[in-house]
Amino acid sequence: MGLDKKERQYKFSWDLLGNIELGRPNLGQNTRLEVYRLMQYTFRDVLEKRFGTEAADEIFYEAGKLSGQEFYRNLIGEQKNLDEFVLCLQDILKELGIGILRVEEADMETGKFVITISEDLDCSGLPETGFEICTYDEGFISALMESFTGKEFRVKEIDCWCTGDRTCRFEAQAL
């Protein structure tokens, strides 16, 4: 059950990411990727145990979406056209070590996009589990697409490192 706004302690804001320069004068921005994955997959474990696989995936999709909205607002900003949006996103995802973005298909009229992320932060190098695991990325990408186009999007991962592929492929469709 959702909490009233008054009861919430952890409502997200970009400020919650903190002043890293001040807080980590010696260690700085970097941490090892395992630490990020450790947190993500232990969260996923507990959420799945408590709420089931489907609900855990939904939570990750929703969290990814919130993250994508904030990411767009704080790090990307308004973009003039698709080319600049893609270029800006490619640069920033690479710079932050999130992944290497490539576009296979982009149809602004039908709202269909196929994009790939190689060396993905969430999954590249994971064991082959046989199912697509990047639900957080799905939500993240949907929010980026929505922020750029102003339309609602549904994103589904169709290839994933965890299904034996070497690059994650996502289909995004405007609703």
Binding site: V103, S118, T163, G164, D165, R166
Partner: peptide, 29 residues
């Protein structure tokens, strides 16, 4: 699935991206 399939898919993906890029260039990007 498998090593060869995964890498062939990666090659296909790169070529698709290249196709998209070429189309964008043709449109002046």
């Amino acid at each position: 699935k498998g090593f060869v399939v995964a890498h062939l898919k990666a090659l296909q993906s790169n070529l698709r991206h290249l196709t998209w890029q070429t189309k964008r260039i043709a449109q002046g990007d």
